[in-house]
């Protein structure tokens, strides 16, 4: 048990993008700020600071989460993945299909898509559009996003070829 009773930094250890990391953080610091301003991992964006837009989506223990709604000090022992961990070779369909325009929502979109791609079972009960509803985009109208992810999913797993019913 650690009981920090002042705003002294807390040192925690976690796994970030497959590498162990020990870091001293202010207990009030959000994961988003640690990533961006302490670690220089600026791919994770702040869009709203209230868990609405999903631009700061990262994977924590293989699940998508908004980095603006997590305190870094809560992540001791956890596995965190950010956009910086994504292999560029997995992005060509999204590149081709117009998934990105201004790019501000894009890293969050890619991270949520990565999770869906790794857990395609989640599409059994919810549509791709439903699963992507935590990522607001103001440029594409979502068609380019949905199409790009569909093509990526189908390439990963052609047996369960997925198509937006709309």
């Amino acid at each position: 048990m650690s009981t920090n009773t002042c705003t002294n930094p807390i040192t925690i250890s976690l796994t970030l993008n497959s590498k162990p990391l020990s870091i001293a953080v202010d207990p009030a610091e959000r994961l988003l700020d640690t990533l961006r301003y302490q670690l220089g991992l600026t791919g994770t964006k702040e869009g709203c600071a209230e868990g609405e837009c999903g631009a700061c989506t990262v994977l924590i223990d293989d699940q998508p989460a908004n980095a603006c709604l997590v305190l870094t000090c809560q992540l001791a022992g956890r596995f965190v993945r950010t956009i910086e961990s994504i292999n560029v070779d997995t992005l060509h369909h999204m590149h081709e299909q117009g998934t990105t325009q201004c790019g501000a929502c894009t890293p969050g979109v890619v991270m949520c898509a990565q999770w869906i791609n790794e857990h395609q079972d989640v599409l059994k009960h919810q549509s791709l559009r439903q699963l992507m509803s935590g990522n607001l985009c103001r440029c594409t109208g979502y068609d380019g996003i949905i199409l790009g992810i569909e093509k990526t999913l189908n390439e990963t797993n052609p047996a369960t070829a997925h198509k937006d019913p709309r």
Binding site: T57, P64, A65, W115, S133, G134, N135
Partner: peptide, 12 residues
């Protein structure tokens, strides 16, 4: 549960 926020909220 499915109506609460979006996946990013549901997981946390």
């Amino acid at each position: 549960a499915r109506t609460v926020g979006a996946v990013q909220i549901q997981t946390r």
